[in-house]
Write a protein that binds this DNA or RNA. Structure first.
Lengths: 165, 165
DNA sequence: CTGCTATAGTTTGAATTGAAAGCATTTGAA
DNA sequence: TTCAAATGCTTTCAATTCAAACTATAGCAG
């Protein structure tokens, strides 16, 4: 469904691209959500477990940056994972403000059991694109995502209200 | 940040592509959310208003399909817009189950005032890609998004639990 | 040392979101 | 015609999500 908006050619082009990008991402997310739910996991919870599995223990601030989520959100998601015994919080003794989040042995076993089939589903879903197309899509998305570092900000970080800072 | 997952080459490629797609989409959404919030709008609310502006009045079922949201969600979002006087519900006389949602005169004035700058911000954000790249990104995302029609389902629609239906 | 500022987390409040259950209406098959 | 299934919407419930306010700690300037 292309946009019906009557704007400049550049705007219409950007709008159509934006719509397709958003729909592809949401469609994919919806498709992955269902099997995760059968394991009792939400997308956000999986993100935390995956980060801890592949990158090792880290504090909440780092989780915020990796997962592009606000601090308040990470607190709640980690709360829920902790309640299930999949992760554990530990005060950092060097910096007592900081809390290191780590997988528990159960959490490790659990995510190791769950992640491969998740990855396989992603692989299947993306297989409508050939390898070259996947690389090109990745390249374009990376270029877009990167533009954030220049003019955007992560959720939860202060947003300047100045018109021209 | 490429994935650290040790899987087949195809899986690693798909995973990297998926991560970049998701990050690009979320980064863009986060960037657009802030100025919308200044108008008192959430992304979901804007989606409803935009659909009604460009496609005309429609019932909630159609809104679900256009916006890829569950029925329960649309009900709530429309509730909130109705409370603000921006949209209006009307029982469909032909089919009394159905409710047609339409912009009120204020809603029309409001979205007409707000949408152009939203579109302009999208255009600016996407301008890191040249026109050819935007078209290519759109094409690849469309191909991905379309795969849903074959094997996925919209949120809120029944999901078969059969392994091989 | 004292106090100011920055940083890490948490809490609070409101909106979003989806699944599932429920209600009213319509449709279609016997 | 009649009633079971399908459809459109709402409600309920739990989890997510963000912004903003708040607490505690760290680090720095004087």
């Amino acid at each position: 469904m292309p946009t019906r908006y009557k704007g400049s050619q550049a705007e219409v082009r950007a709008l159509n691209c934006y719509i397709k990008l958003t729909r592809a991402s949401e469609t994919l997310a919806a498709k992955l959500r269902v099997p995760l739910a059968r394991e009792g996991l939400t997308t956000g919870q999986l993100g935390v477990l995956e980060a801890l599995l592949h990158l090792g223990p880290m504090n909440e601030r780092e989780l915020c940056r990796k997962l592009l989520r606000s601090g308040g959100n990470i607190t709640v998601v980690v709360d829920n994972l902790e309640r299930r015994g999949l992760v554990q919080r530990a005060r950092n003794l060097k910096d007592r403000r900081s809390v290191t989040v780590a997988l528990t042995p159960e959490g490790l076993r659990f995510i190791r059991g769950v992640f491969p089939s998740h990855a396989a589903r992603i692989s299947v879903a993306l297989s409508v694109l050939n390898p070259e197309e996947q690389r090109e899509l990745g390249r374009l998305c990376r270029k877009l995502g990167r533009s954030k570092a220049e003019q955007g900000s992560a959720p939860g970080e202060p947003v300047s209200t100045l018109k021209n800072p």
